[in-house]
Design a protein around this nucleic acid. Sequence first.
DNA 1: ACCTGAACACCGTTCAAGT
DNA 2: ACCTGAACACCGTTCAAGT
Lengths: 188, 188
Amino acid sequence: MTTTDTREIIMAAAQPMVQARGYNALSFRDVAKEVGVKSASVHYHFPTKGDLGAALARRYADEARTFLAAVLSEAADFDVSIQAYIGVFRAALANDNRMCLYGIMAAEHGDLPAQVRAEVDRFTDVNVEWLGEMLLRHKPKAKPEVIRQQALAIFAAIEGAQLVSRGRGDISVFDQCIHAYKTAGLFS
Amino acid sequence: MTTTDTREIIMAAAQPMVQARGYNALSFRDVAKEVGVKSASVHYHFPTKGDLGAALARRYADEARTFLAAVLSEAADFDVSIQAYIGVFRAALANDNRMCLYGIMAAEHGDLPAQVRAEVDRFTDVNVEWLGEMLLRHKPKAKPEVIRQQALAIFAAIEGAQLVSRGRGDISVFDQCIHAYKTAGLFS
DNA sequence: ACCTGAACACCGTTCAAGT
DNA sequence: ACCTGAACACCGTTCAAGT
């Protein structure tokens, strides 16, 4: 039995909208139209827009954690794992020039309800911790602060590549940035 | 005689609002309130929101070009120039966690009028060209494509550092990323 | 338990009317 | 030339009313 209650259908409709146009541009009436209910009905499941935004961000971070844990447990080598990681961000762009849900929400940070901000922070944590774990396996003798800083920098650099690539509407910009990061030695 | 016509006062009021909350969250009524006119009057100077957004982005790119040309003409060495460049992005964060006008607009790309998008692209060009020129002076024997790719990567990495730092509301995140970029050798 | 229509104060935009 | 009030269709949100 598949779980396809209205709540999930709403989230499934709303997430690509946010990744395409941002949290601010998300409209309860547009979501309702796609789901086939009235906007007041969306408010029954998600009382405020902040509730919907936070639910989307939370699920997004949870899914990222699950996916990354799987990559880690496969114990593939460092380069393969990093490549899988980068592939997730690339996939968003390949899907109609969409952006990582986190990236677009971080940009809108100043206009986000507090509950959404909290989930956005959680996504950063998930990513930086995973990258840190990967780096630690790669060079076990490195100092924890250095590892953490490099993990943060890798995350930021990839987000930036996605941002600029999206701004230009050209995915090859993303690829060029990643290649230059590698050449510079950011991933090693 | 200072030029302080209504058009410029409107832009001066609107720009920090966009850098704080994004283009989508910008409200003609809020701008009007701060300027001391009615929103219909803002429409007299900027017929549509796209006109105002494009004017802001255009001026922003022009000012960046002027500033960067000045840095270049001072013929300071590479490290000093890059440091000045990074300082501009840091200053936006230091100013109430605001974001580079370009960065926030690139994130909102999917919801931007075409005229605004065009100016956003221009900003990328200005930055990548300047960085390319700097890199070429730094290592004159490098191939043009490699230079251009590294310039693009530096721009993207700095935008990403700003994005993540803003998302966390902690400017030290920006500093840590920049430090890690330097350590990795992205700027050399 | 879930949905709806109607209302509220907001938004960008238009336009006839004022000075 | 510049500004305004009033109207339009949008928005998130609330709530009494339906099933």
